[in-house]
Nucleic acid binder design. Structure first.
Length: 208
DNA sequence: ATCCCGAGGG
DNA sequence: CCCTCTGGAT
């Protein structure tokens, strides 16, 4: 894989998908964290439909920490995996209120101690809130990185390290949403639309 | 490796 | 109808 290939792809991604992503609406850090937690295995659209009512009902982390589980479930039911997500949200808010004085951690290790917060969620939170550079490897980034020939790792953690070496740091925080969008619309898991792919000239796995 | 789980696409 | 989905926990 040649360096010009990477530059070519990155320029094209910036051109097609832009360089900034509209993050989830939030007034407080815990709201952003909650929104990202809800987005697991769901689309942004689904999450955004639920947020207004959710934050109207629960004004702060303490409200959610004290709320009956069923009330949280009701507020997010239309999103998949709602039982796990409600349970994690409540537990996470309890931790924030009872162990952290109401403050959401500002570092990766602190965030990873919270219920329902894994590497993907934590990295995205830090990127959105503080602009801290981080490569988040979800299913789309994982799949496309390998098709492009940027990585060959067996799991997301390995691919994350490979991408950190291949990609300039100033692209880390936008490669995620760019590849996710590309992955949902063009470079899909099955039946990738290579004919209409703007990255095809640099792609190792391009289909004819 | 499996489960969670509603929504939308093929 | 059947499949997958911007993860995380067990």
């Amino acid at each position: 894989m040649k360096n010009e290939h990477v530059i070519g792809v990155l320029d094209k991604l910036d051109e097609i998908y832009g360089v900034t992503k509209k993050g989830f609406y939030h007034k407080q850090p815990w709201q952003l964290l909650a929104a990202i937690m809800l987005s697991a295995q769901s689309t942004d659209k689904q999450v955004e439909e639920v947020l207004p009512q959710l934050f109207a009902r629960f004004q702060n982390a303490e409200d959610m920490a004290e709320a009956p589980l069923e009330e949280i479930e009701d507020a997010i039911r239309s999103i998949g995996l709602y039982k796990n997500k409600a349970k994690n949200l409540k537990k996470c808010c309890q931790q924030i209120v009872e162990e952290l004085g109401g403050e959401v951690p500002g570092d990766i290790d602190g965030l990873l101690c919270l219920a329902g917060v894994g590497r993907k969620t934590a990295t995205l939170f830090l990127a959105d809130l503080y602009g801290i550079p981080g490569v988040t490897v979800d299913t789309h980034v994982f799949r496309i990185s390998k098709r492009l020939g940027w990585a060959c790792g067996k799991n997301p953690a390995e691919v994350e390290l490979e991408l950190q070496k291949v990609l300039p740091k100033d692209h880390w925080n936008r490669i995620n949403f760019q590849l996710i969008y590309h992955g949902r619309t063009v470079c899909t898991a099955r039946k990738a639309k290579c004919q209409e792919c703007v990255l095809a000239e640099w792609c190792e796995k391009k289909l004819d």
